[in-house]
Design a protein around this nucleic acid. Structure first.
Length: 525
RNA sequence: CGGGGUGUAGCUUAGCUUGGUAGAGCGCCUGGUUUGGGACCAGGAGGUCGCAGGUUCGAAUCCUGUCGCCCCGACCA
């Protein structure tokens, strides 16, 4: 089966007629197949999700973008609570000394830390200059293992104090060289779960449990299939014993790490001194985990589902499920149309989707119907409902779906709409998920020869690389040398070593050495 | 941080080679006609041409430096 993400847009274009088609075919220019990175930025602008700020690498998340993040937060927070976690908040500033305690951690994060060295500004010759140097500089958290570890060390005395199962919603700062809206910003929003356990087995189980939470969230809410597995040593979190991840494929066939869960062993508890007296009276170090997802999920969502007309939101994560658009061509019927729109919205809100009332917006702005419709198309709202004077007479409204060409509309009796919308939302959700699965299936290849591998990851046009490649399932001898070589040659890395109940041994096509199992290779964000 | 590209109104851009103090389209505002698919007519607002120096009688244009952004590389969620 050939999955074509552009099919919808083409069908839409074929339906177009009149002056519009001469003017503009798609809302977003360039199209995905012309220039994917530029398309991505234009979608963000067209949907009014975010913009770059005056500080390099930082972004302003605008209301519609933030609403998507809030939806993610709401569902994840619920899932964390269901798995026994509670929220807390730890400081933004970390004493420099804390960061020095775990060697691998220092190595991993030292290069990208913002450091606070002063606590006062003085006005000199009209310029503000920092004064009041701090005795010990403070690091703006790039992640919170160290400062949370220090707190856990204070809190834990006995095995009865364990486990500690906390999460925090916070911002973190990593001074990135190449920022990209949502995908990699100097400051980003995330959640970080931090747990401490009595036994190794318990901590390992926790690590895996939270990975499963992320996987379920991605599949059920974002409609994005993800591969799960373990990171190779070179991709592991600094200081972790094992790093597990969910990896998604987006429409340029690159991989994106959408969430991680780390088994930290006793590394951080030894560094921070998280010790307790066990059931046998012996003093032991706790076993810790950490796990997180960030606003990168918003970028992942955009790249996974959106099309050449803008954002496409899966209903289960959309801030609004439906928008009612009053069409008010005549002054004398305007009040009636607006009133009917409100009545329709109100009745629609009595319907429920996925266990909650259908979220409805009414766009009562005094603008042309086409203008308003296009705005909501670009914002990715799953369902648009237009209601105008003719509908009033007939008791109907025109229903359009974001997963269908934008010209398609179905006139439904108003009375049927509250009953019908939840079904449509369900169809859109499962349709987007199915399409994403099919897309990934099409671009996931099992391969055994080096030649095939290199061909797969080499664009035909090197000057202006077309969308190519995907995920390659190939054997690997487990050596960092092979990883290094492939990365240098093709910019392809091991995204994860999939969990495999019965691994199929084979031969590494790059070294000829023995391989325990196939691993997932891809270009990545 | 290295290589390449690029900065002119909110967006897209003309002008730069051959210096003479800025033009368009979209968007925005007002009025009218419109509104079921990104409307039309008329009027209007908006730019110290990224910033700082320099050359010159005069700089968007030439020179130097610097900053931002984009792409590639290193690094990363």
């Amino acid at each position: 089966m050939q999955t074509d993400f552009y099919r919808g847009a083409r069908a839409g274009m074929a339906n177009m007629s009149g002056s519009m088609s001469d003017k503009q075919k798609n809302a977003i220019s360039p199209r995905r197949d012309e220039d994917f990175p530029e398309w991505y930025q234009q979608v963000i602008r067209a949907a009014d999700l975010a913009e770059n700020s005056e500080v390099r690498g930082c972004m302003v998340i605008k209301p519609w973008g933030y609403a998507i993040w809030e939806r993610m937060q709401a569902e994840l927070d619920r899932m964390f609570k269901e798995t026994g976690h509670r929220n807390a908040y730890f400081p933004l500033f970390i004493p420099l000394g804390h960061l020095e305690k775990e060697a691998a951690h220092v190595e991993g994060f030292a290069k990208e830390c913002a450091v606070v060295t002063h606590h006062r500004l003085e006005l000199r010759d009209g310029k503000l200059v920092p004064t009041g140097e701090l005795a010990e500089p403070l690091v703006v958290r790039p992640t919170s293992e160290t400062i949370i570890g220090a707190a856990y060390a204070r809190w834990v005395k006995s095995w009865r104090d364990l486990p500690i199962l906390l999460n925090q919603w916070a911002n973190v700062v990593r001074w990135e060289m190449r920022p990209r809206l949502f995908l990699r910003t100097a400051e980003f929003l995330w959640q970080e779960g931090h747990t401490a356990h009595e036994t190794r087995a318990e901590a390992e189980e926790e690590t895996m449990k939270m990975l499963r939470v992320y996987e379920k969230f991605a599949r059920e809410f974002l409609a994005i299939p993800v591969l799960t597995g373990e990171k190779s040593e070179s991709e592991r979190f600094p200081g972790a014993l094992r790093t597990y991840c969910i990896e998604a494929m987006v429409q340029d066939r690159k991989a994106i790490q959408a969430g991680t869960s780390h088994f930290l062993g006793q590394n951080f508890s030894k560094a921070a001194g998280i010790q307790f007296q066990g059931r046998d009276g012996a003093v032991e170090h706790a076993w810790t985990t950490s796990w997180g997802v960030s606003t990168r999920l918003v970028g992942t969502l955009i790249m996974a589902h959106s099309d050449d007309d803008g954002l496409v939101l899966p209903p289960r994560i959309a801030p609004a499920h439906a928008v009612v658009i009053p069409i008010t061509p005549k002054e004398d019927s305007k009040a009636d149309v607006l009133a009917a729109a409100e009545v329709l919205a109100t009745s629609l809100r009595t319907a429920s989707f996925a266990g909650a009332p259908v979220a409805v917006e009414v766009d009562a702005r005094d603008l042309g119907g086409g203008v308003k419709s296009w705005e909501w198309i670009k914002k990715g709202v799953p369902v648009r409902i237009e209601i105008g004077p003719r509908d009033l007479a007939q008791g109907t409204a025109a229903v359009s779906r974001r997963d269908r060409p934008h010209r398609d509309k179905e006139f439904l009796p108003v009375a049927d709409i509250p009953g019908r919308i939840p079904e449509i939302l369900k169809e859109i959700q499962s349709g987007l998920a199915a399409r994403a699965v099919a897309f990934r299936t099409d671009h996931l290849r099992t391969m055994d020869s080096k030649e095939q591998f290199y061909e797969f990851f080499t664009p035909k046009n090197s000057a202006k690389p077309e969308i190519h490649g995907g995920f390659a399932l190939a054997h690997w001898d487990g050596s960092a040398g092979v990883e290094e070589k492939i990365k240098n040659d093709l910019k392809v890395t091991i995204r994860c070593i999939p969990f495999d109940e019965s691994p199929e041994p084979g031969t590494c096509p790059f070294s000829g050495g023995p391989s325990r199992q196939r691993v997932v290779w891809a270009k990545s964000y």
